[in-house]
Amino acid sequence: MTSEAPVALVTGGTGQVGSVVVRFFAERGARVFVPYRTLAHWEALRASLGPLAGSVAGAQLDLGSADDAERAVTSAIERYGRLDWVLCLAGGYRPGRIAETDPALWEELLAMNLWPTANVLRAAVPRLLERGTGRIVTVGARAALDPGAGSVAYAAVKQAVMTMTLAVAREVRGTGVTANCIAPATIDTPANREAMPNADYSKWVPREQVAALLWYLCSPEAAALNGAIIPIAGGQ
């Protein structure tokens, strides 16, 4: 691998979607830096990558902390000498109708979905602007575009992520940096299959298709795409 290989910072990279994205990017020659919270998950990711593990580095950090998010960006640059792509995949889902949505649930969803993305972008955007090139991709949700009953806080928090991404896209417009957001429906993961054993999995979004879309958004061919919210819904 050459020193010119692009460098991707992938939050949520040890998760069931993120691990597929990390492999997809490493297979195509990218170098990947993964901030992680749980050592066992990081070790499982490294083991699953086999020979590709040499293209992936990481550090144990809590991206809910602005200081740790700064360390993640700094560590990626120190490790690889550059930063090209920032993929904010860290997140999580919790259901609840409005009467069931207490302050603790709001705080949990903000901690899982909004603060890691906001903190990482706060640290990464100035670095990308200094280089005059870069790609930012965040993860919203179809539930934020078309909210249904039973996921009030999740839909609202994901809408906040989407709005933040649009605002960042305005900030970086014309600089060589782009910011876009994907809005997936239910993704086909082992956890979702366990939670919904009677669902029609054929209509769910394959993880590999999420990875392929992210790869495209980081590519030179996507240079003109900035400030887009891209639904990825499968057959749902």
Rank of each mutant, 00 (worst) to 15 (best):
P35G: 02
A99K: 00
F24C: 03
A59M: 10
T101N: 07
L63D: 06
M162P: 08
G12Y: 02
E107Q: 14
Q16F: 01
A53V: 09
A211P: 01
E130T: 14
A72G: 07
A26K: 06
R193L: 05
S75K: 06
R23Y: 04
R82Y: 06
D62S: 13
A72M: 08
W115Q: 08
L129K: 13
A144H: 11
V137C: 09
G227M: 02
G15H: 04
P116E: 00
A26M: 08
A155D: 10
V161S: 09
A90D: 04
A111W: 02
S75Q: 13
P220V: 00
D200Y: 03
R142N: 11
T117M: 13
R79V: 01
P206W: 07
W115H: 12
G58M: 05
A47F: 02
L166C: 02
G134Q: 06
S19D: 02
E4I: 06
A44V: 00
A167F: 03
R193E: 05
R28T: 10
A153Q: 10
G234P: 12
R71A: 15
A76Y: 05
L9E: 07
A47P: 00
A228E: 06
A233N: 13
E130S: 12
G148M: 10
A212Q: 13
W42C: 11
A30F: 15
R122S: 12
A156C: 12
G174H: 04
E70V: 08
A104Y: 01
F25C: 06
L109Y: 04
V22Q: 01
L121Q: 07
G29P: 06
A90W: 01
D188C: 02
A228I: 00
T163A: 14
P35Y: 03
T178N: 03
C181E: 07
S75P: 00
H41W: 04
R79L: 02
L110R: 12
R71C: 04
M196G: 00
L109F: 05
E78I: 00
A160R: 11
S48C: 02
R122H: 15
I98K: 01
A8V: 15
E78P: 05
H41G: 14
L45V: 04
P35H: 06
E107F: 00
A47N: 09
E208G: 05
I136V: 15
D67L: 09
P35A: 01
Q60T: 00
P6A: 09
R94K: 10
L9R: 01
A69W: 07
R46W: 03
H41K: 15
L89Y: 00
V21D: 05
A143R: 10
R207K: 15
V177W: 09
A144L: 08
R207S: 06
A179G: 02
I98Q: 05
A143V: 03
A66P: 15
Q209H: 13
P197V: 09
S219M: 10
T138N: 14
A160C: 11
P197D: 07
A66L: 11
W42G: 09
E108W: 11
A228Q: 13
L89S: 11
P197H: 05
S65Y: 10
S202H: 10
A222Y: 05
G64W: 02
Q60L: 04
V86Y: 04
V152T: 14
C181H: 04
V32K: 01
I182D: 08
N226L: 02
L129W: 11
A169G: 09
L166R: 14
A53T: 06
W85E: 12
